[in-house]
Design a protein around this nucleic acid. Structure first.
Lengths: 290, 290
DNA sequence: TCCACGACATCAGTATTGCTTATCTCGGTA
DNA sequence: TACCGAGATAAGCAATACTGATGTCGTGGA
């Protein structure tokens, strides 16, 4: 199971086309066809239905493994390369939107002042992209925020070998439009809201599948998908009544009211995540710790 | 980073010899030398010192990644092959020694009676071997036991995609030789025993590194290494005063007394672990659930 | 119903890769 | 200093994995 074959398999599955995958990867269509055939004969199973291209059960199963494997492979490469490269004069900090708040800016500014020769960059993206970036070395340090049970770590994509430490914990709140029947409450249980409409904003708010897991129940249907990473945009949607969202408190946005979740006990947390640190990246990471 | 190269790298690191690794893998020494050279030039780093062969820092880092990657790779293969293979007429159950207790035998016997055409096998080994076996398809179903905090799952090697479910929880006890000053107590805290001598029996009792993590402290020096998987043998060592061990209660062995651990709160737990199940394996798995 | 077109499969040819055998080089040791 | 063991290097050859051309199948339009 050559990683090359795995990569073209993932691409074909993603584009649902051999030709498109070939173009994307810089191969001929013929090569892609042969690679998939090789994979299938190696595993002794049909991975894709043809015309139209669709995953078989076996293919779907393989796809679940392929992503993490490829991620880890490049994490390994990045990890080794980082060790042997010359000390970088640049540090890239990746953060999820709510994690990249005022304190981040203050810390970055002070560290920048302490090390004027180093070039710092702040990149705001989704949770998974931060974790993957840290694993593959695109990012030196990551800040990820999310909602979980007090004793659990934040769920991150499996890239292995990532050190995490808790930076901030505060209350998790559900964001309601002002005037919503629940908006006046002081606290609430998640299960009461299983029938409500939620905004599916996996990169800013709590992803819906995780929400269901936290509440130990189904429901939580999504009325609106928000793939962006802008917090104000999400809150505007909430204010407009497009749906609810589980967020870090306190919420300060006109027309939006945050109500703390008390059942189950939940916290919003910001975690610092990194692999092996270059010296300037280490300074930055230390600066974040209390 | 071809998995083949990774595999020979792991073998070379393990044997600390190019020639021995070549023999073990069925290559010539020349091939191994070229493979390592290819890996090093690909990553742009020296992975091994030569004469004598030893890991560089970069090599050590790569080695940490290589194991999990190779494991996941074969887990992926096994997972796909299992889906497309014909229904097997054989089920292999792997279990750690304390997990494979009386109830296991009873369940196996009754399932065997229900499906006389199917050939069942019970294999007792270490924790990691059970998890790896289930991931790679050598085992259909695994039973793993161990000690953790009540809210945490048992720590298993990262093979991804393994479903686990809790079967039994009971108290965790420290096994003392009769006459030990602590042997008369009704309960105790782990930290009190950080200075005691422990038996390092990673496949039967709680591994020492995990013990340190549970107690949030150092210490726990090992007086004796017990790599076997026989429970009676371990208890005999405890009775002889070779050291202590953290085990599932209750302990019934002449000369050994078990005292429950109450600080931190710990439980001994047996977990069922499996990948995708063949029909007869599913029946077996269901039979274990309460 | 038939044809044309789009999309994947197959085939032949070739460049590359990755092995083996043979030989060389280096470091430790008597 | 000479030898021996162990890894590096070189040349040759077989297997692999591309490209380009052609074949086959399903679909949509006339």
């Amino acid at each position: 199971m050559d990683p090359h074959l795995l990569r073209t398999f993932v691409t074909v599955a993603g584009t649902r086309s051999f030709s498109a995958a070939a173009q994307e990867l810089g191969y001929t269509q013929s090569a892609v066809s042969q690679q998939i055939a090789a994979l299938e004969s190696d595993l002794g199973a049909t991975l894709l239905h043809r015309r139209p291209v669709a995953l078989t059960d076996a293919g779907a199963r393989l796809l679940e493994h392929a992503g993490p494997i490829l991620l880890r492979l490049s994490a390994a490469r990045a990890d080794v390369v980082r060790l042997s490269g010359e000390p970088a004069a640049t540090v890239v900090l990746g953060a999820t939107p709510f994690a990249g708040s005022t304190r981040v800016a203050a810390v970055l500014a002070s560290v920048q002042r302490a090390m004027p020769r180093v070039r710092f960059t702040l990149l705001l993206t989704g949770r998974d992209a931060v974790a993957a970036g840290v694993a593959t070395g695109t990012l030196d340090v990551g800040l990820v925020d999310g909602v979980t049970a007090p004793s659990d770590p934040l769920p991150l994509p499996d890239a292995g070998q990532l050190a995490t430490s808790v930076l901030v914990e505060n209350t998790a709140v559900v964001a309601f439009p002002a005037g919503h029947p629940f908006a006046g409450r002081r606290s609430l249980g998640l299960a009461d809201l299983a029938d409500a409409t939620w905004i599916d904003a996996p990169d800013v708010a709590t992803p819906l599948p995780q929400l269901r897991a936290l509440a130990h129940s189904g429901g939580f249907r999504d009325g609106f998908c928000y793939p962006g990473t802008d917090t104000a945009g999400l809150l505007a949607l909430v204010a407009a009544g497009a749906g609810l969202a589980l967020l870090p408190g306190p919420v300060t946005h006109p027309g939006v009211v945050g109500v703390a979740v008390t059942l189950p006990r939940l916290v919003h947390r910001v975690e610092l995540v990194h692999g092996s640190l270059t010296p300037p990246a280490r300074v930055l990471a230390e600066a974040f710790r209390p």
